[in-house]
């Protein structure tokens, strides 16, 4: 009788291991997000735990409490770094004071005799460049997406889509290089701006990196509008442009909104393009033809030269944390909109 051995459920070791291993590996993505949170914030933390430069030990204490044993090593390393500086002696190193007032000031002079860590010009810089980029990229990308999915003849579509994929594949350093060498000169010749490298040049260059993102997601959103909807409109005698403008586009709005949000996120976090094309002067102005220094470019330019563990280093990590939180929030909101659109799609609404 074979039936009795149905009961002897075998313990499949390899099956069990495979499943656990796969789940554990999948968990890694989640763990990395947590680790990014922890390790980027942790290097920014000393700013908040010490308002006086002399109380570095206090900051160390704080860390020990928060992170347990592994922080002990970190602490000793911090001490070692301080020790080394003291021994070096020859250069009088001034520990910066990163009080809230200093952080909220309008001067970013991290390596002067009295370091100033005012984040405002950097934040304004990032916002300014991102705004220029998205104002240029979003209309172009959304219109092009509308064109591809509603009006374009098949032949044009077959050129347009690969062209955008090519643009998406441009390394940002290549766009930065193009902006630095060609675009900057072109813009200066055209408008006679005082500075070759400025917020406008950076924004234009950045829009090249933002266009593919907005285009892809907007196109996706437009293509996801149920055919029944557009067909209903056409059957009522509406022309294809009326359908596109008054039916398709409104129906795709949440997806397009998400596309713009993700575009802003990309613009805000992009480093190489702005590092190479904006002139990197931390000016607190709202003039688009002034040079500008963004948050990401500041990290990119200065991190390689700071002393590990000092205030400047911590402030750069603080800027990174702000970037992370900002893009994280944008992504979460965008995802909410995309999901809602998908849900509606599945409900057939």
């Amino acid at each position: 009788m074979r039936s009795s051995d149905l009961y002897t459920r075998k313990f499949h070791v390899s099956e069990f291991l495979a499943e656990k291993l796969i789940a554990a590996t999948a968990f890694l993505s989640f763990a990395v997000i947590i680790l990014i949170f922890v390790f980027v914030f942790r290097e920014a933390l000393p700013i908040f735990s010490s308002s006086e430069p002399a109380t570095h030990d206090e900051a160390v204490q704080e860390e020990v409490e928060t992170y347990g044993e592994e922080a002990l090593g970190e602490a000793s390393q911090l001490r070692a770094a301080e020790e080394k500086e003291r021994r070096a002696g020859s250069i009088e190193h001034v520990e910066g004071n990163a009080s809230l007032r200093n952080l909220l000031s309008t001067d970013w002079q991290p390596v002067s005799g009295e370091p100033k860590f005012g984040l405002l010009p950097l934040i304004v810089g990032s916002l300014k460049v991102s705004l220029i980029a998205i104002l240029l990229a979003a209309p172009l990308a959304i219109l092009a997406a509308l064109y591809t999915s509603t009006f374009a003849p098949k032949r044009v579509k077959e050129i347009l889509k690969p062209a955008i994929e090519i643009l998406a594949g441009f390394p940002s350093v290549v766009i930065g290089f193009f902006a630095l060498i060609v675009l900057a000169t072109f813009v200066q010749d055209l408008f006679g701006t005082m500075y070759r490298l400025n917020a406008f040049v950076g924004g234009v260059a950045l829009s090249l990196a933002v266009i593919p993102i907005v285009y892809t997601i907007a196109e996706d959103a437009i293509a996801a509008v149920p055919k029944s909807m557009t067909e209903a409109s056409l059957a009522l005698g509406a022309t294809s442009w009326q359908t596109a403008l008054f039916v398709t586009l409104p129906a795709a709005t949440p997806g397009i909104f998400a596309a713009v949000l993700l575009g802003v996120g990309r613009a805000f976090g992009e480093t190489m393009i702005v590092l190479m094309a904006t002139g990197n002067a931390a000016l607190m102005t709202f003039n688009v033809t002034d040079p500008v220094r963004t948050m990401s470019a500041t990290i990119g330019a200065e991190m390689a030269e700071v002393v590990f563990g000092d205030t400047h280093y911590n402030v750069l990590f603080l800027i990174g944390s702000i970037l992370f939180i900002f893009t994280f929030t944008l992504n979460a909101v965008a995802e909410f909109y995309i999901r809602r659109r998908l849900l509606r799609k599945f409900r057939g609404g």
Binding site: R2, S3, D5, L6, Y7
Partner: peptide, 20 residues
Amino acid sequence: LIEGVDIYDPKVDVVELRKR
């Protein structure tokens, strides 16, 4: 019940069942 064995019994090996 397949030949008297309840196939939804937690002790039953579903892989073995599907071979049968």
